[in-house]
Design a protein around this nucleic acid. Sequence first.
DNA 1: CTTGAAAAGAACTGCCT
DNA 2: AGGCAGTTCTTTTCAAG
Lengths: 156, 156
Amino acid sequence: MIELDDIDHALLRALSRDATQSAGALGKLHGLSQPATWRRIRRLQDAGILKGRRAILDAEKLGFGVTVFLGIKLATKGRVSLEDFERAISAIPEVQTVEHVLGLYDYRVRVVARDLADFERVLRRRIMTMPGIGDVEANVLLSEERRPGPLRGVAS
Amino acid sequence: MIELDDIDHALLRALSRDATQSAGALGKLHGLSQPATWRRIRRLQDAGILKGRRAILDAEKLGFGVTVFLGIKLATKGRVSLEDFERAISAIPEVQTVEHVLGLYDYRVRVVARDLADFERVLRRRIMTMPGIGDVEANVLLSEERRPGPLRGVAS
DNA sequence: CTTGAAAAGAACTGCCT
DNA sequence: AGGCAGTTCTTTTCAAG
């Protein structure tokens, strides 16, 4: 695990907000030259801390106005049924994320749909028909805010 | 809302997986020239479908080995308390996403911590002490899979 | 839509402090 | 480590078919 200073943290924070910024522009903000900034970014990539860059799509503009979070409890959980479930749920196109979790539920799933009627179709025809499915709880997304998350040591 | 063809969808899918690909390289994969591909990407950006590009960080490599999803039910929900809650929860550095939802819970929150002991500290000192907080449910992330999500019309 | 080309900028390299 | 200078690549824009 490599050592990161404040500038590294600032670069990570800036890039996690907007990855289109050039090394030169980022460097100017922190008093570094373009090559120095670029070498730091390269180092963060090589260390695996910067995993990649993804384009962020607007689901609403693509016609998917409804986002629903499902909490799913399996009726039967052997090792086989976990993998079966993951394979089956991942095959549903409307599913954006599948999170295997520990707690009240076994899986947390993010689903998008054109509207509530479309979501009901997905829920009834694709989700509820899955083998081994138990309790399902749903929450409809109203609004969402993302933050960079912590980077520094967070004082104890 | 602009019209998108299969190539547009393929470009969105490719960029949402890896936004570092050049227009030239992407075009080659889909039988388009570099300027044609670039114009399509530009069009998708101007339409707001491509909202931006974000760097993906590895929380574990940054020393945050624990991710927990909280389902939070407020005890008192007036318009004021919703905004108060959002302001307060957003001020916690360990909080990555705050989702206002409709259903069994009022908010869904993604929290990262160094380990479970660190998470307990955040939960007890930062979350449970928030004004107006009601029931809190927690799920610890074991593994996560992300998919591009649907783009096309999804046959009915 | 294509190809070709040109200008700007960003990414990358090697050398030096 | 960081800066400077130079090279290579991509981006961005153009003209012409």
